[in-house]
């Protein structure tokens, strides 16, 4: 079905219907484009009119030590959170996709629950958890999280992990278990069939899950404010920088950081689309 002439022959009613559908597409695309354009326009217009910092000083500000530290911490914590997310996502996605066990649906719903949880509540829940005896024991004996950089990682994991699990589970769902069955008859153990067949076939989906998790980790802000606060040079990541800069009236700097984050998000999206295109064969369910 195509809007521009290649689909079935349609009358006036069909054309009106298609136009209504396409109107929604156009309005949404225009909405997102307008947001992006507004950011660019604000930074550029202020630089050109002299009411804000010029382009050179704007770029210099991006290299201030606070922003560089925040960038480093963002990269580090996002990568750590993504790694932890994938350590859970691969086995959990596989188990939820392949095994039928009591509580399967409950576990599946728990994944979705964190996806739909308001971010602030995730932060609040984590803060409350670390006030419980179990949480206090963890903080006393294992690792401190509250107002610590490690707290950033656990917030990012709580927000990004479910997305990665969902993506990996969907990938395994799309791979027919028959491939593994054949591997079993060809001499593989269950673990061997997973490692030699399911895992390589799910490779692109797993990478897409990791990119999604990384992009999500990179951008979270709400839970961080509750669990780790916004301490410069300590628990400051790029979203926190945007918040801190705009709270002291340096909107242009906040926007410049925002544009940097948008560029990284767009790069992630391009990688994601590329991997999803190359997942076509994974979906060949026999």
């Amino acid at each position: 079905m195509s809007f521009f002439g290649k689909g079935p022959v349609s009358g006036t009613g069909g054309k009106l219907f298609a136009t209504a559908m396409m109107l929604a597409v156009c309005l949404f695309v225009a909405f997102v484009a307008a947001l992006l354009a507004a950011d660019f326009w604000y930074v550029w217009a202020n630089a050109a009119s002299g009411t804000g910092p010029d382009r050179t000083s704007l770029i210099e500000k991006l290299f201030e030590k606070e922003i560089i530290a925040a960038t480093k911490l963002s990269f580090l914590t996002s990568t750590a959170a993504t790694a932890i997310s994938m350590i859970f996502a691969v086995p959990m996605g596989y188990a939820l996709s392949r095994y039928r066990f009591p509580g399967n649906r409950l576990a599946d719903s728990m994944v979705d629950l964190l996806v739909v949880f308001p971010p602030l509540i995730v932060g609040l829940s984590l803060l409350v958890f670390f006030q419980t005896p179990a949480g206090k024991w963890i903080e006393a004996n294992l690792l401190k999280f509250v107002y610590q950089p490690s707290g950033i990682v656990i917030c990012q994991f709580a927000m990004a992990g479910p997305l990665a699990i969902r993506m990996v589970k969907t990938t395994f769902d799309e791979i027919n278990p028959r491939y593994e069955h054949v591997a079993l008859t060809l001499g593989c153990t269950t673990a061997g069939a997973f490692a030699r067949v399911a895992l390589p076939m799910a490779r692109n989906g797993i990478m897409a899950g990791a990119i999604l998790a990384w992009a999500r980790s990179f951008g979270i802000f709400g839970p961080l404010m509750v669990l780790v606060g916004a301490v410069r040079m300590r628990t400051e990541v790029l979203p926190t920088t945007i918040y801190l800069e705009q709270s002291v009236g340096r909107i242009e700097v906040a926007l410049a950081v925002a544009l940097l984050m948008i560029a990284l998000a767009l790069a992630s999206l391009v990688c994601l689309r590329f991997l999803q295109t190359n997942r076509a064969w994974e979906a060949s369910r026999p």
Binding site: V197, S284, P286
Partner: peptide
């Protein structure tokens, strides 16, 4: 016994050749 220990070869209806 597990499938791998049964001494069988198996070709399913969809053949399930490993695409990778």
């Amino acid at each position: 016994l597990e499938p791998r220990l049964r001494g069988i070869g198996y070709v399913p209806q969809d053949l399930a050749l490993f695409p990778h």
